[in-house]
Design a protein around this nucleic acid. Structure first.
Lengths: 210, 210
DNA sequence: CGCCGGCTCCCCCGATCGGGGGATCGCGGC
DNA sequence: GCCGCGATCCCCCGATCGGGGGAGCCGGCG
C-alpha cells in the first residue's frame, strides 16, 4: 500500500469551530486529502490562501469582517486558477449567483453528507464544476427575471428598516418621487404585492440580509 | 490511569451531518463523555431519547419534521429531569425564550469553541444552567416588553406574505377591523414604524420565520 | 450613432395604512 | 365577584402607498 503521490491540499474557511472540526474529521479519513489550513473569516482566508496556496478552498459566505463573496473575488484576482467551493446554508438564488459570479467552482450545503463533500472536492480539484440540484433549480427558476440594480437594493434595505419613501429619499439624498419609482421597479421585478412582501421576498432570495 | 467511573452519555440532535461529525470528534477527545446517539430531526430525537436516555442532549432548533422546541417539550413531558442544551445559531430572543420555556437547561451557539461545548455539557450535567452572555443580554433587553400573542403572530405572518388587512381578514375568517386592531397592537409592542418594519423586527427577534 | 437600461424627477388619484377614539365578550386570576 | 387581557368589531380621518402616465440624462453596447 503506497502513500498517495500528491494529496489534494484543502483550506477551510468558516467561523464555526465545530463545523471546521467536522470537516477536518472527514478529511482525515481520506487518504488523498490534506487539510492545510483553517480560516475564520474572509480576511483570514485571503492571507491563508497566499500562505498555503491550497488546491481546493471550502468557503462559507457569511462571516465577520470580509464576507465570503468578497474573499472569493479577492483570491481569484490574485490567483485566477484558484478552485473555491462555497459551503453554506442556502440563502437564496441571488446570494448563490453572486458567489458564482465571483468565481466559485462549486456549491455545497451544510446539510450535505460526508460522501458529497469528498466527491465535490475531488470533482472540483479535477476541474469539474459541481452544483447541487436544489441550487441549480433555485437559480434556474429566476434566470429569466433581471436582478435588482444596486440602487434598488439600497432603497429596499431602507424600506425594510421601516422608512417611509420620504425618509428613504432624505437618507439617500434623492427626491421622494425617485424612491417611489425605484419601489415600483422593485415590486415589478420581484412580483411583490406590496413593500412588505418585497422585503420578505428579497430576504428569501438573498438580495438583502437582516 | 483509571477508566472514569461513569461517562456523561450525550445525544446529538442536528440535521447537519458535518456539524454532528465535529461534535463527535470533540466528544471523542473527552475521557468523561460518550456519544450515545445522533438524531437528525425532532421526531428522531424523541425516539432516540427514549431508547438511550442520555444524560445530556444537544439540540438544534430548526429542523425538518418536528422542530427543536417541540421536541424539547415532548421529551421533558416524558422525562421531566432530562437535561437539554440548545445548540443553534442565535435567531432572536423570542426563539431562545420559547426554548427555555420548553425546558432547555442551557444554550450554546454554533460559533462557540470546543472548550465551551465541553464545559457546558459538564455544567448542565451537574445541574447548573448555562447561558452565553449574548443570549442573556438579548433576552434581558426585551424582558420588559410583553410578547406577541398567538393571534398577533398569525396576523403578522400573513402580512409578511404581502397580504393587505382585508386579505388577512378573509384568510383568518375575521373582520378587517379586527386585523387592524391586531396590527396596531403589534406595531406598539415591537416599537415598529410600519408593517414592513414590524415584519423585519419580528424576523430578527424570532417571532416569525421565513 | 442609435438604442437600451439605470437613475433621476414630475403629476394624478384611488386604495390602503395607521392613529385616535370606543365597545362587547369570555376566560383566568385575585 | 371583579379586574385585566386578549379577541372581536365599529367609526373617523389624515398620511402614505402604489399604479398610471410622462420626461430628461448618461453610460455602455452593438
Amino acid at each position: 500500500m503506497n502513500e498517495p503521490r500528491a494529496a489534494i491540499r484543502v483550506l477551510i474557511v468558516d467561523d464555526h469551530p465545530l463545523l471546521r472540526e467536522g470537516i477536518a474529521a472527514v478529511l482525515a479519513g481520506q487518504a488523498d486529502m490534506d487539510l492545510v489550513g483553517e480560516a475564520v473569516d474572509g480576511q483570514d482566508a485571503v492571507e491563508q490562501f497566499r500562505r498555503h496556496q491550497p488546491d481546493v478552498t471550502l468557503m462559507d459566505l457569511q462571516m465577520p469582517r470580509l464576507g465570503g463573496t468578497a474573499a472569493i473575488t479577492q483570491i481569484r484576482s490574485e490567483y485566477p486558477s484558484a478552485r473555491i467551493v462555497v459551503l453554506t446554508t442556502y440563502k437564496g438564488d441571488a446570494q448563490a449567483m453572486r458567489a458564482l459570479k465571483a468565481g466559485a467552482s462549486g456549491y455545497l450545503l451544510k446539510s450535505m453528507l460526508r460522501r458529497e463533500l469528498v466527491e465535490t472536492i475531488r470533482d472540483v480539484h479535477a476541474g469539474r464544476r459541481r452544483m447541487p440540484p436544489e441550487i441549480a433549480a433555485g437559480i434556474a427558476e429566476h434566470a429569466a427575471d433581471d436582478a435588482l440594480s444596486a440602487r434598488e437594493v439600497e432603497v429596499l434595505r431602507c424600506v425594510a428598516l421601516g422608512n417611509a419613501n420620504r425618509e428613504v429619499a432624505a437618507q439617500l439624498g434623492i427626491a421622494e418621487e425617485t424612491v417611489k419609482a425605484h419601489m415600483k421597479s422593485v415590486l415589478a421585478k420581484l412580483s411583490a404585492k406590496d413593500r412588505t412582501h418585497a422585503v420578505t421576498i428579497a430576504l428569501r432570495r438573498g438580495f438583502i440580509e437582516m
